[in-house]
Amino acid sequence: MKILLVDGTVLGSKTGAILVEIKKYIEKIDENFDMEILTFANYEHQIVDGRPFDQYNTGMQEMVTKLEQADGYIFATPIFQGSIPGVLKNAFDFLNPKALRYKPVSIVANGGTHQHHLVVENQFKPILDYFRALVTPNYVYTHADHFDENNMIIDPNVHERLQELARVFVKYCELSATLSKTPIDQHE
């Protein structure tokens, strides 16, 4: 099963640090996953503007193809100005509406205040619901106090929550493997 750990920003390193930890926890539970960290900062982003897909740069085409071909996702996002970054929303705008259907998804987010966790509930989950992704009920929200000066997670509670997120995500992967991705009316 191909799992994409998506660092959905071009700025900062906290979301990437969270993904590195989650990857370790998932590997402890099940080492058979094929996991890749997809870092948005490694791509030259172009805004979705309606042109044919083959007219976007090769980096965008590669990124979207990876997103559409993965079997499960951990999305990591910072919260900027009370919202997810534009590059993350733009990436979702590229995707086929069926690209995430019944695929497991977990969310981690990082923000400057404790209240910004509501962005996950009010903005991010509705986007994933539109795609009919299997969103785990638990997500992990962090803020600056949870990291040291090298952006390493120092809060033991955050580590516990990341371990629990990894455990639930693996169970959702097992569930997803048993679900048909084809709508019922198209079955023979």
Rank of each mutant, 00 (worst) to 15 (best):
I37W: 06
Y139N: 02
D148I: 14
I22P: 00
D155Y: 07
G12Y: 02
L19I: 13
H159V: 10
T113G: 06
G86V: 09
P78R: 01
M60T: 14
N150C: 14
K171V: 15
F40Y: 08
N138P: 00
A177E: 13
E68Q: 14
G59R: 13
N32D: 11
E36G: 11
L11F: 08
E149W: 03
V158M: 01
L95R: 03
V6I: 13
G12N: 04
I22A: 02
T15V: 08
S180W: 06
F33T: 08
V170R: 03
N150V: 15
L134C: 10
Y73L: 11
V140N: 01
F75T: 05
V140S: 00
Q115T: 10
G12C: 07
L165K: 03
E121R: 09
I47F: 08
K103P: 08
K125I: 12
E62V: 14
D93T: 08
H159N: 03
H143I: 11
A76R: 01
P104R: 10
Y141T: 04
H146A: 03
P85K: 02
D185K: 13
K28I: 10
D185I: 15
F33K: 06
E188K: 15
E31P: 07
G16C: 11
P85T: 04
P78L: 07
L162F: 10
L88Y: 00
K28T: 14
T15P: 00
N32E: 13
K171D: 13
H143P: 04
R167M: 11
P85N: 02
V10G: 02
A70C: 09
N122G: 12
K89I: 06
I79H: 00
H187W: 15
V140D: 00
A177L: 15
V105F: 06
K98P: 09
Y73T: 14
F33Q: 09
G86S: 07
L179G: 13
I184H: 04
F169R: 04
E27W: 10
P156H: 11
N110A: 10
V105R: 07
P137H: 04
M63G: 08
H187I: 15
T178S: 15
Q186L: 15
A91G: 09
I18A: 06
Q69W: 11
L179S: 12
H114E: 12
Y25S: 06
N157C: 06
P156L: 15
T77Y: 03
Y56A: 09
L162C: 05
Y56S: 11
D54V: 11
T136H: 05
P137S: 05
Y172N: 05
I184V: 15
A99G: 12
L100M: 15
A109L: 04
F33V: 10
P85R: 02
F40A: 09
E31C: 07
E174W: 10
M35I: 14
Y56D: 11
N42D: 12
Q61H: 11
D93S: 10
M60D: 08
K23L: 04
P183N: 12
Y102H: 09
P78W: 04
E121Q: 11
V105K: 06
L128R: 01
N110Y: 05
A41N: 08
S106G: 05
L88E: 00
I84K: 00
L179W: 07
P156Q: 09
V119E: 02
L100I: 15
